[in-house]
Design a protein around this nucleic acid. Sequence first.
DNA 1: TGATAGTTGTGTAC
DNA 2: GTACACAACTATCA
Length: 526
Amino acid sequence: MISSMSVAIVWFRKSLRLDDNPALLQVCSDPSIQSVLPIYILDPEIHGKSFEKIGYARIRFLLESLEDLSTRMNEKLGQKLLFAQGNPHEILSALARILGSDLCLLTSDYCSEPYGRILTDKIEHSFQEGFSQSKVCFHQATHTLLDIEATTADPTFKNPKNMKDILRIFHSRFGTDGNGFLQTPEPQSAPTSLQPLPGDFDPLTHPETARFFISDISGIWVPPSLKESMVPSPFKGGETEGLDRLKRKVSQQTDFVNSFRKPKTFSTNDPANPLEPSTTGLSPYLSVGCLSVRRLWKEVEACNRGCEHTQPPESLHGQLLFREMFYLLSRSVPNWDQDLDNPMCKPIHWGEKDENKLEAWTNGDTGFPFIDAMMRQLEATGWMHHLGRHAVSCFLTRGQLWQHWKTGRDLFERNLIDSDWALNNANWLWLSGVAPFSMPYFRLYNPCPDGKSSLNAETSTARFIKHWIPELKDFPAKYVYEPHLAPQSAQAEAKCIIGSDYPNPIVDRKEAAKQNLAKFKASLQA
DNA sequence: TGATAGTTGTGTAC
DNA sequence: GTACACAACTATCA
């Protein structure tokens, strides 16, 4: 650096937003800081060198979110967001070396995942050793309501396993107001200004950093087939859309919020728009941090105040409480994403992989239209309804195909736009029946739900299935769940012969379920 | 020690 | 539409 000044780096990590962003606010509110480098780093460890680690829908959602963050920073704060690609430790160290004594602060948000924590520790250590002039601040409780580190480090902490446990933790940490509402932290508004970039340092041209930095988001390489491969999505990435969706689906929908019961949500899809979910659809925005969970909690609370409303576990607050519970467990339970040495994973003998079954499940060619429709929707849009996720994961594991839950977990991780390490592993542990949550292993989801099933209502009209499996579009609704049972004449009339135009069922669902139940039991007793 | 409950089951009889 | 049988886990609580 040529002239002496106080520079801060704001590293946007899991909070791609201006609203309720503690790292950003810390810099804005510090008058001693003269200039700021706001940075987002594409990390090959997380995204792959050329995005090979995440699916198209996730890439698209992430890029849209970054573009929106960049635009908002420009418009609202008059500041440019810098993009870099590479190892964050390497890049931040290079910046610290160049800025030298001018660098007074590196600030960012918390990441609970094993890789994220290792990275955080490494950066903190390096700065202490080599760049002690600069303060390093990783704000806790940026992605969750609870401070995950402080909560799990408390000597009285015990792994929460149900709604009662997590409510107890919330009550003890936050307390309640006179009306019985939990006093969760208040979200903070976005800043209105931000210090400028350092005048005499441009990381894009500096010889030590030029190779990492990209001039703007359009310079990020994406797979050429990305654009053609995608169908229209109701989820556009970014804080702008996240806040708008929050308003549309929560703040302006008091009745919907107050009567929200998660298990009942499959039946209320918008018939005019089969892509729009029946739930709030806010999870992708929480996942990349376009939306603050504190903001969402308070908006739901505002609807609840003074009105009759549903309660956890089924309510929207209940859903957020489970999210917190899974974050705590993902931090406190060793080997959370493994079956070995994971005290929350029962030792089930899943046996060898069956590539044919896995391929059929992945591609939506199992011959079970309900399952296939869900899987094709996932592939095309990166979204699947909550109960659909239950059905396909049960089907893949303890239900019909007897394949290891980690295989399904990996596909979800790659493709879901609300992909989240802590939650994805938790849900697969739960749904495959291996976790000691309240999932009796003999309770199965029927892959061919009839009119009375909890999975039913919307799909009983067959609209959902016909949308995603056009082969069946002229099939009589009566046979649409089990088309192989339709008489040949009906198949011919619908121009879809089962076995050639659409596959026969990959397994006998009842026979497979019976055998798998026995295998599960045998594993537990072994 | 026995009863009960656990975010969201399914199938059949009436 | 409701009631109940099915199958039968585990942790917790009285």
